[in-house]
Amino acid sequence: MALIHVDFFSEVLEMSSQMDVILPQQTSGQIGVKNLDEVDHFPVLYLLHGMTDNQTTWQRSTSIERYASERGIAVVMPTCHLGWYTDMNIGFRYYTYIAKELPGLCRRFFPGLSTKRKDTFIAGNSMGGYGAFKIALLNPDMFGAAASLSGGLDASTTSKRNEDAFYPTLWEDIFGPAENIAGSDNDIFAVSERLSKSHKKAPFLYMWCGTEDFLYEQNISMRNHLSSLNFNLTYKETPGDHSWKYWDREIQDILDWFLETGKEEN
């Protein structure tokens, strides 16, 4: 595998940004690395970080490079700061940056990435789980599958949290007034309902959450909602809290699941 640190300019954010990219590499002499079959294009996972993290955290807290190498999948890890993958009420257009600008840049920078919907995936943990579902459901023509690990999936509930660790106007700066979230593009419940009534093909969805996680009730609500809309949903829960030892374990199953959904699309 190749690990590439990319500093580049974002026209959407109007500033320089960063992403780390794991690219599959055919090798025969590297000890401990499985030799991959030669292919023209690799499936790609856009892997989103959580609220207190950046583009390096998945690498530092899991063995994502090794897992991706074993499966022959490219992984793009962008930074989104504290933007909740949202075009902020006061701040930057992080949704447009991640959902619209970034895939185009990656395909130009790395022509070995597949451009097919069935090979294009998105996942994340916590804030990143929210971002993954939101982006996939708003862009079903681009993403074949999406996965959330311990996702903060209910923006209306999230925006009412009161935590001393963050500045007082954080949630309103991100989402705007809490009463305006319901029914908007920041409301995954509403977005998924709109998609279910459209003629568009919905992405496969995967959820995992630990039963001791403080976001567990949000995940149960989203599971029930998506099931009622007849989404192709894989749901898993196990004992666990909001921590990396569980996300490191679960991302391995999710990578395998992504590749299986790609076969189903053939």
Rank of each mutant, 00 (worst) to 15 (best):
M1L: 07
A2C: 10
A2V: 11
H5A: 06
V6M: 05
F9L: 11
S10Q: 02
E14C: 11
E14Y: 10
M19C: 10
D20C: 04
I22M: 00
I22A: 01
Q30L: 13
G32P: 02
V33Q: 09
L36F: 04
L36K: 01
D37A: 14
E38T: 14
H41K: 15
L45D: 02
L47N: 03
H49F: 08
G50E: 10
G50T: 11
T52V: 14
T52F: 14
N54D: 09
Q55A: 05
T56Y: 15
Q59S: 12
R66N: 12
Y67C: 02
A68P: 00
A68C: 00
S69C: 04
E70I: 11
R71N: 09
G72C: 06
M77R: 00
M77I: 00
P78Q: 01
T79I: 09
C80P: 04
H81M: 13
L82H: 15
G83F: 06
Y85A: 05
D87C: 04
F92P: 01
T96M: 01
I98R: 00
I98A: 00
A99H: 08
K100P: 00
K100I: 01
P103T: 08
L105V: 07
L105F: 07
C106T: 03
C106G: 02
S114I: 15
K116L: 15
K116D: 15
D119H: 13
G128A: 05
G129F: 11
G129H: 09
Y130P: 00
F133N: 10
I135C: 04
A136Y: 10
L137C: 12
P140T: 08
A145I: 13
A146G: 02
S148C: 07
L149S: 00
L149N: 01
T158N: 14
S159Q: 07
S159E: 07
N162P: 11
E163H: 14
A165L: 14
F166L: 08
F166E: 03
T169M: 04
T169K: 07
T169N: 06
D173Y: 02
D173R: 03
I174R: 05
G176Y: 01
A178F: 11
N180H: 15
I181M: 14
I181A: 12
A182I: 15
A182W: 12
D185N: 09
F189D: 07
A190L: 06
E193W: 12
E193C: 10
S196H: 13
H199N: 15
K200S: 14
Y206K: 06
M207V: 10
M207E: 06
W208D: 02
F214E: 07
L215W: 08
Y216Q: 03
I220M: 05
S221W: 14
S221Y: 13
M222P: 06
N224Y: 10
N224T: 10
L226F: 10
S227P: 08
L229R: 12
F231H: 05
F231P: 02
F231M: 04
N232V: 10
Y235E: 01
W244Q: 09
K245M: 12
Y246A: 03
Y246L: 04
W247S: 02
D248G: 03
R249H: 10
R249C: 04
E250I: 05
I251Q: 12
I254A: 09
I254P: 03
L255Y: 15
L255K: 14
W257H: 02
F258N: 00
T261P: 00
G262A: 08
